[in-house]
Write a protein that binds this DNA or RNA. Structure first.
Lengths: 305, 305
DNA sequence: AGGCAAACATGAGACAAACTCAACCTTTTC
DNA sequence: GAAAAGGTTGAGTTTGTCTCATGTTTGCCT
């Protein structure tokens, strides 16, 4: 019924002040516009503009359509631009979300480095999707999700970034500080500090405490890593944390990092992306950069590769 | 390049889960869709969806276009609906703005009555356009503006609604209360209370004080009519006001209403509308209702007709 | 008034776009 | 392993949209 062409014509007509001028702008003949309007006005059942006036005057219907044009044409142009970027492959969009709180730390150097290499790519670290990032990824609202448990989802591929050890931070003078490694039962009498997210997203619960059916004496949450470290250092509790996130504190003797279980608790971080994005050059490069920076960031912190 | 048809097809495809189903919904053959997508994907330079999967899966480009479809198709439908309402003539939109503060009082009964008669018409008393309602009217953002000074503007027609007398409200024991009528010089020593708008929109300045080159001792503003009446009654100032707006207070002996100048200061309220809206049945009816209710509201208040 | 120019309308024909039909792959299903 | 279902492809037809040529209206000039 109504076509984009019509909106473009109306828009041009408003700028041009006459059919002849508008036709020029659109690289069409005046006749074409005349036909177009005649047919459109027939379909709409009413005139869209008054002809004989010098600066053309629109009727209410014409104004309503102009309003529509003003609202939609920019959206259209933006979408077309995005698509041709996608097709070009040299630029595009990279909206990310991270499931793991402590990942900012290593993601930031990656982002900085990537921004230099691909200034054209629109980078964004989304904060609004932290509740359900994977559906947003599938929907197209996000382009990359950093997660430690890859859920099998059609069209989503997971690229392993690196493996790290989850450890327990305890105060230096804590009674657990002298043990070679922590067992689940050690936490029966402890206060466990975690990020404020659901338990099933925390490895220390799903892969350490729950298999042994152990519940800590108390659980409290904190948003910020530094805050958690303060609480730990002052003996107010213990907390599970990626080993590289702890390194900054443990290497300075602020807290002690203890292995969880005899063999340690290891987890792998993955980048989840839509399968077809693997082909985009900037995406390949981002993933390589991410791996690289994680290696160098974690170097000397004995990251498991 | 990109056409609405494409967005509709993509949208249908998402709902339908297969080309065959989508074709059915669009009353087209499956072949048509296949051709359509082939050509579109060629133009876009990349695939838009993965075929062989049962619930079809979209690529990033496809998702981007779906996002566009979600944003634009509703706008389009809304516009088409508005247009056909306009064409039908029995329903439509009536977004109003009033330039005159005290007009709410008589506009409300008009609106109430009109709403009963034309429930299909989308009524709105806009507040956001009080700064420059006439351009908004010309642009199509508004459909009717109540004003007391009709500015000549192409495409805008003014329909006179009614004429009223602007009077001066003074306290009962005020020294001016005993005069037969007020002359500009009477205000030299008075505090004048007005609505908080520019002076050139206030008749008492433009048509009474300024021609005589008189400036009141003081000018203060107030948003609310009742507030102004309180100030006047307690002798804190005087204020110009349509005679019918004063009636509620003067008839109860709360304040006194005095004529401005020997012959009185009369003003006419007009409804400004776009010329082509004069044909809309609901608009004609609204204007008649407005005149009618103003007569009855002002009855016994000796409005000048 | 007459005549001229500019703006718009209209009819016919050219051409392209988009659809249908029919035949042909490809994958899934029983 | 055949049938069914989903999708592709090429040919042909329909539909629609443009241009070209020409007609009509309006405003303007002297």
């Amino acid at each position: 019924m109504l076509e984009i062409r019509h909106l473009k014509t109306l828009h041009a007509l408003r700028e041009a002040d006459s059919l002849v001028d508008a036709a020029d702008r659109l690289h069409l003949t005046q006749s074409a516009l005349s036909h177009q309007f005649k047919e459109l006005e027939e379909r709409m059942g009413m005139p869209l503009f008054v002809r004989k006036t010098k600066p053309v005057r629109f009727t209410s219907a014409g104004l309503r359509l102009l309003q529509l044009a003003d609202a939609t044409l920019p959206l259209l142009r933006a979408a077309e631009r995005d698509i041709s970027r996608l097709a070009g492959g040299t630029a595009g969009r990279l909206h990310m979300a991270i499931e793991c709180h402590s990942c900012f730390q290593w993601l930031m150097p990656t982002i900085d480095q990537f921004r230099d290499a691909w200034p054209e790519v629109e980078l964004d670290l989304a904060s609004g999707f932290s509740f359900a990032p994977l559906p947003a990824l599938a929907r197209g609202d996000l382009d990359l999700v950093v997660t430690s448990d890859p859920v099998d989802l059609v069209g989503i591929t997971y690229v392993p970034l690196f493996t790290y050890e989850a450890m327990l931070a305890v105060a230096n003078q804590h009674k657990l500080a002298s043990k070679a490694y922590i067992v689940p039962e050690d936490l029966l009498t402890e206060t466990l500090i975690t990020y404020p997210v659901e338990r099933d997203r925390l490895d220390i619960f799903t892969r350490f405490l729950e298999p042994a059916d152990v519940e800590p004496a108390q659980v409290r949450t904190s948003e910020l890593t530094v805050m958690m470290m303060q609480l730990v250092a002052s003996g107010r509790g213990v907390c599970g944390m990626p080993h590289w996130a702890l390194h900054e504190y443990s290497s300075r003797g602020y807290v002690k990092a203890k292995r969880l279980g005899e063999k340690g608790l290891f987890a792998t971080l993955y980048a989840g992306i839509r399968a077809d994005m693997l082909d985009a050059p900037y995406m390949r490069d981002f993933l390589l950069t991410a791996k690289d920076t994680s290696f160098s960031t974690l170097d000397g912190v004995s990251a498991v590769r």
